[in-house]
Simulated scan of single mutants.
Amino acid sequence: MGLGLKGACEGIARNPDVSGKVTGTMILAFAFIESLAIYALVVSFILLFANPFVGVGA
């Protein structure tokens, strides 16, 4: 996320006219990154507390 923010700041510094478009794209990309982290957290909780592999083949 830091590299994305760095790239957005550099792009806005080079061409301030596109700041709205760059900011919107950056926020959308951050939302996708955060949703991926939340999905990974949910899957890890499912595997931790409702492990479907416990008791299989025993």
Score class of each variant (00 low, 15 high):
Leu47Met: 14
Ser44Glu: 04
Ala29Ile: 06
Ala40Asp: 07
Val43Asn: 06
Glu10Cys: 11
Gly7Met: 12
Ser44Leu: 07
Leu28Trp: 06
Leu5Trp: 00
Ala37Pro: 00
Val43Asp: 08
Lys21Met: 06
Leu47Arg: 09
Glu10Lys: 14
Ala50Ser: 04
Ser19Val: 07
Glu34Gly: 02
Lys6Cys: 02
Thr25Val: 01
Asp17Ser: 15
Lys6Ser: 03
Leu28Ala: 15
Ala40Pro: 01
Val22Asp: 01
Gly24Phe: 00
Lys21Phe: 02
Asn15Ala: 12
Ala58Cys: 06
Arg14Ile: 05
Glu10Met: 14
Phe49Met: 01
Phe32Gly: 11
Val54Asn: 12
Gly55Asn: 12
Ile12Gly: 12
Tyr39Ile: 11
Pro16Ile: 02
Gly7Lys: 13
Leu3Pro: 02
Met1Arg: 05
Ser19Cys: 14
Gly20Phe: 09
Phe53Thr: 06
Gly57Lys: 08
Ile33Cys: 14
Leu48His: 07
Val22Met: 04
Leu3Ile: 04
Val54Thr: 07
Ile46Ala: 10
Ala13Ser: 14
Leu47Ser: 05
Ile12Asn: 10
Ile46Val: 09
Ala50Trp: 14
Ile12Ser: 12
Phe45Tyr: 08
Ser19Asp: 03
Leu3Met: 11
Ile33Pro: 01
Met1Cys: 05
Ala31Met: 12
Val56Trp: 10
Leu41Arg: 13
Leu47Cys: 08
Leu48Ser: 08
Asn51Gln: 06
Gly57Tyr: 03
Gly55Cys: 06
Ile33Thr: 12
Tyr39Val: 09
Val42Glu: 03
Ile33Asp: 14
Arg14Lys: 15
Thr23Asp: 03
Leu28Gly: 10
Val18Met: 09
Thr25Asp: 10
Thr25Ser: 13
Leu41Gly: 11
Val54Gln: 13
Thr23Arg: 13
Asp17Pro: 00
Lys21Gly: 01
Ser44Ile: 01
Leu48Ile: 00
Met1Lys: 06
